[in-house]
């Protein structure tokens, strides 16, 4: 359902359930109104996502920068789990949580490009449409965002200070 993806996109940008909901609602109404500009036969999903993202980002800009995406509580280690070692599984899980938490420190646009690719698994063509840029630009934006994310993770390892700007290269 497109509405679910729209909701997730809005949440990834705003990090606030209420803002995300407002953004999606407004975006659906706008999408409906803007149908005249939607070419029949064009991909609908990225078209809708673009409207959702714009709505969500405009809501973000007035709010403060960093978001804290809600993370699932670590699942308990089950006996007979298929993973080789419970410790290894816990570490992997910790890493995933760390990565997801680091996402919250990116700029909304950077978070969005990574989320489209790795969380929502959009194709490159869809990403280009959803981001309103050329396909070549998708690659460079993604790579820049990944570089920034890596920088945040590295900084986190060293224990970054509050509000510190991370400017590491990829």
């Amino acid at each position: 359902m497109h509405q679910d993806l729209a909701a997730r996109t809005a949440y990834v940008i705003t990090g606030q359930a209420a803002d995300a909901q407002d953004a999606v609602q407004e975006a659906l109404v706008k999408a409906y109104r803007a149908l005249g500009r939607f070419r029949e036969g064009a991909a609908f999903r990225p078209w809708l996502l673009r409207i959702v993202a714009n709505e969500a980002i405009s809501r973000r800009r007035s709010a403060h920068r960093q978001v804290n995406l809600a993370l699932r509580a670590a699942e308990g280690r089950l006996p007979g789990d298929a993973v080789p070692s419970p410790e290894g599984a816990a570490l992997e899980q910790e890493q995933r949580r760390e990565v997801a938490a680091a996402m919250g420190r990116l700029r909304p646009e950077e978070r969005l490009v990574i989320a489209y690719r790795y969380w929502f698994e959009l194709s490159e063509a869809e990403m280009a449409q959803a981001l309103g840029c050329a396909r070549g630009t998708v690659k460079s934006r993604l790579s820049r965002a990944l570089g920034k994310l890596r920088g945040i993770l590295v900084e986190g390892q060293a224990g970054w200070g509050e509000g510190k700007q991370v400017t590491l290269d990829a």
Binding site: A7, L71, E92, R96, V99, W119, L149
Partner: peptide
């Protein structure tokens, strides 16, 4: 990228009412 893909599940998306 692989870690990111796996981290997708780590995010607890809020329940959104059917709009």
């Amino acid at each position: 990228g692989r870690l990111l893909g796996e981290s997708a599940r780590a995010v607890a998306y809020p329940e959104m009412p059917d709009l």
